[in-house]
Nucleic acid binder design. Structure first.
Lengths: 374, 374
DNA sequence: CTGAAAGCGCTTACAG
DNA sequence: CTGAAAGCGCTTACAG
């Protein structure tokens, strides 16, 4: 009753909150949470009864139930999640492992995952691998045991380079469901959601050709990743199919986001060869290219056209605005989470071991760095 | 032994992984994880013994210990986190609640939090409130019981408007430590990490004055938030202290990110009054303002100077590049997590109930939308 | 050196 | 309608 009194004060008057704190000093400072046991003691009933009352089961006298429910509500009883998880099979938690969160594409995917997850009452445990194999391993190991029901991952660059996928096998072996997105690998058999990077690059390259370009360069920071490879393939194949010889000198690969290096290589290339279009494999390289090209005095898109991968935020605010290949990041996140959910809930139409690879089509968002189709 | 045999195959040969799956079919599909009990059965010893062996305690015969350790390693034993959490006091997990992840500032803070957390072996449970009070409440309630040791939060817009902070009190009452960053409230007593928004706006405004501007407008999407209020105050006070009358017509407040509305209001204002500088409270409004101003034919910074809050990614890639007030997002995240860590580990120098508010100084990053100081 | 027992907080058959 | 018991997976005094 005393508790109840203070509870009311507490909710209607901030000042009394302090009094509350004073009175219950030890309890509050100890971080003691209300448990079924505490409630059972309060009402002189068994823990089982309290549990059932709180679950609003029918076989409890409605009188007792009401009292217990009211008390639990007032004292803000929340079941201990760990106890719940320990008993049940489901943790209602998903692990998310992404290379970076500062990259808007990954942030978008994350937002999509989070949206669907929270709609279904799932929590997210997040780890940023920073493209490091070690960090990815540690994260997965932590998540694997009892922490999560499933993991959504975009594989770290280092992992892809070293082709070391043991941690994924281990994880799947413990029964955790795995879904990969964007940066995936054929060596691991699981559900995957990828962007049609090949087709995206193919279409962009072909768009250049159709608008009269034939000396098409490619600028990339991410040649080591699976994604980068697919895009380069798409670029090459589009050239071939349009009877344009692939010129290795027009493929500019820079490691990491080295602005100076990019500018230097680009300036060199533009100075020594004819270039009338550049396909940039990421937003930032496109922004840097745009800046360099403007400084060198070329007209865009008349002299040089530009298309950038990833429809992020930069391309919308440059002058001129950059034409982009949109990867539909948020949608990818939603799809990844939906696939995982289906897998977890076993309502996958396919048989247990048949995994799906969902390919999301890119779309070309035409802005001001490309010529119009005639 | 059979297991061991397959284990070896599995690790050295991908193809055998499938065989492994076949053989252990039921076990793998059931998601059965190896427990102490399983190991105990394997060696015909007690669970307690296995537990101690795995913890490498001294009072176990080194022979047995070696065998158990080897077996555990081979079969990739990982302790069930939920059991651990249920026993112990610490969950080694932190809850992070942020309004958005698509906003680079929050993404930066998140990256900072994640960095420090992972350095200290902490996991992150993440929820995006989407500026909704309800979602914030749900998230906090979920996290509070046994899920996390502490919560780092930037308060949702709606929460700040409605001034409904009960869920925070409830959380703190259960013993969970709370740290707020950026969007905070005086009504909740906890550790806080904020940016000196007042001073940031003050300095930016004064910089305008010093470079010869006197008709200084303000453009804001976030007037409802605490952060927005502080910035507006800083702007006003700088004007007053420099003997410039505050002109309400020069304060343009737009709800949400409404591009059209922003352009319209800005065009109207520029058409009807003299304006030689604009302080934009966020990156996007600055980018829109820049675009509008350029289109109207003004020279930047000669006719109109611009300073934007948040040193994100857009401002670096516009033409001209926008001068910004940097909030040091990553640093804020690191600081928030460090404060929480200190609080959790009780090695705070202060007494339990004395909370600190850390104020991070902004810095003005001069680029091309402001005149040089003479 | 090894193990039985208690307990973290919960739920769910099963008795009564 | 209520409760005793078992169990989820673990650790830690405490015996032996």
């Amino acid at each position: 009753m005393l508790n109840l009194f203070f509870y009311n004060l507490f909710f209607y008057n901030l000042y009394s909150f302090c009094i509350f704190l004073e009175i219950n000093h030890k309890q509050v400072l100890m971080g003691k949470r209300l448990t079924l046991k505490d409630i059972a003691k309060e009402f002189n009933v068994s823990i089982a009864t309290v549990s059932k009352a709180i679950q609003d089961k029918h076989d409890i006298s409605s009188d007792l139930k009401k009292k217990i429910l009211a008390y639990a509500l007032e004292n803000n009883y929340v079941p201990n999640q760990n106890a719940l998880k320990l008993r049940g099979k489901q943790t209602k938690t998903i692990g998310v492992v992404i290379p970076s969160i500062l990259n808007l594409f990954f942030a978008k995917v994350f937002a999509g995952i989070e949206k669907v997850a929270s709609e279904h009452g799932y929590n997210l445990i997040t780890c940023i691998s920073n493209d490091s194999l070690d960090k990815e391993k540690i994260a997965i190991d932590m998540m694997v045991n009892g922490e999560v029901d499933g993991i959504i991952i975009s594989v770290a660059k280092e992992t892809q380079i070293k082709k070391d996928y043991k941690h994924f096998f281990k994880a799947m072996n413990t029964g955790v469901k795995l879904t990969m997105f964007d940066r995936v690998t054929d060596d691991v058999d699981c559900d995957k959601v990828i962007v049609d990077d090949f087709q995206g690059a193919y279409n962009a390259t072909e768009y250049f050709v159709k608008t009269g370009c034939s000396n098409i360069a490619l600028l990339s920071f991410i040649s080591e990743t699976s994604v980068g490879q697919y895009r380069i393939q798409g670029y090459k194949e589009a050239l071939e199919n349009n009877h344009i010889t692939i010129n290795k000198n027009l493929i500019i690969e820079v490691k990491e986001h080295d602005v100076d290096e990019t500018e230097t290589l680009l300036t060199l290339t533009l100075g020594s060869r004819k270039v009338d279009a550049i396909l940039c494999l990421e937003e930032t390289s496109a922004a840097i290219a745009l800046d360099t090209i403007k400084r060198l005095g070329y007209k865009i898109p008349e002299d040089i056209s530009i298309i950038a991968f990833t429809n992020g935020i930069i391309t919308k605010y440059t002058t001129p605005k950059i034409t982009t290949v949109s990867q539909h990041g948020v949608f990818m996140g939603e799809q990844s989470m939906t696939y995982l959910l289906n897998r977890l809930q076993g309502n996958h139409s396919q048989k247990e071991k048949e995994f799906t690879t969902k390919v999301i089509k890119t779309s070309l968002i035409q802005r001001q760095t490309t010529k119009k189709l005639s």
